[in-house]
Design a protein around this nucleic acid. Structure first.
Lengths: 144, 144
DNA sequence: TTGCATCCTGTACCCGGGTACAGGCTTACC
DNA sequence: GGTAAGCCTGTACCCGGGTACAGGATGCAA
């Protein structure tokens, strides 16, 4: 009957107490039972759910995306949705890695050239004026 | 005498008008001359400076870092500061790439295993329960 | 029954990097 | 000199993911 108190859930899942209420507002956690006095009483599975949420976040999903995934998973029987979204995420991550790699290369150029100033670099063949990485606006909507 | 009007600078550098004032507040742009009526009149070099700022941002520097770099570069004669900071950034970026790579691997696991739900996955050897990437708190201060 | 820990609600604040808006003044062109 | 476009200031808001605080009400054990 009693269930877990909010602080127990928070501690067990390693999140802040406020975060539980925040997730409730965001629709990631269902509204739990209440005691007669109005205190929240969580089913034990909530801890596992929080771990799932954290795992999904670490996978790069936003809270909105996680909420939607949980919702989809809950309401109908399994779809290929998660798989598709995971694949989309992989594409997204590949883009981010490519960006970071380009930035890293530009930084090594700066280091190798021994640049000494952003605005008045005296080094030979200073690469700074040519730093236009990602300057083209990446405003791809849905590519067709 | 006249200099460029704010909208000219903004357009030439491809930034929002408000962003100019924002940068001024943040100390990235010096307060420009004013017309008799109080309108800002920018020296033409401001456009180049904005490009430098944008380049530095694309390199992963925060506005605070850029402000500091510009400041350092302006006040004394060249130091090795930029070089050092660039190297630090490279380390930072390497960490981010490693994180993303781990996440990507976890996602491909999810895809390969044909997971169909975050919470009730029916696939064999479901990897979701084992997603603990980055769960260890990365609270490295300055490592000694 | 008392007393303290815990929990409740609502609201405001934090980070970084801007963007928007209102209400009033200036500039530029005809 | 009229009028529209442009600019000024201050302030508030946006995103995402939380965190903090005030002022009351509950829970539980002694």
């Amino acid at each position: 009957m009693s269930g877990l108190r909010s602080s127990q859930v928070a501690a067990a899942a390693g999140v802040n107490l406020q975060t539980l209420r925040y997730y409730e507002r965001r629709g990631l956690l269902a509204e739990p039972e209440r005691s007669l006095g109005g205190h929240r009483l969580y089913p034990p599975a909530t801890v596992a759910l929080l771990n799932v949420i954290k795992a999904a976040q670490r996978l790069g999903f936003t809270l909105d995306e996680v909420a939607e995934l949980l919702d989809t998973g809950r309401r109908r029987h399994p779809t290929a949705d998660l798989r598709q979204r995971a694949m989309d995420k992989i594409t997204e991550i590949d883009t981010r890695i490519a960006d970071l790699t380009a930035i890293r290369a530009a930084l090594t150029d700066v280091v190798d050239a021994r640049c000494d100033s952003l605005t008045n670099c005296t080094c030979a063949d200073c690469p700074i004026p040519f730093l236009t990485i990602g300057a083209a606006d990446r405003s791809q909507g849905e590519p067709a």
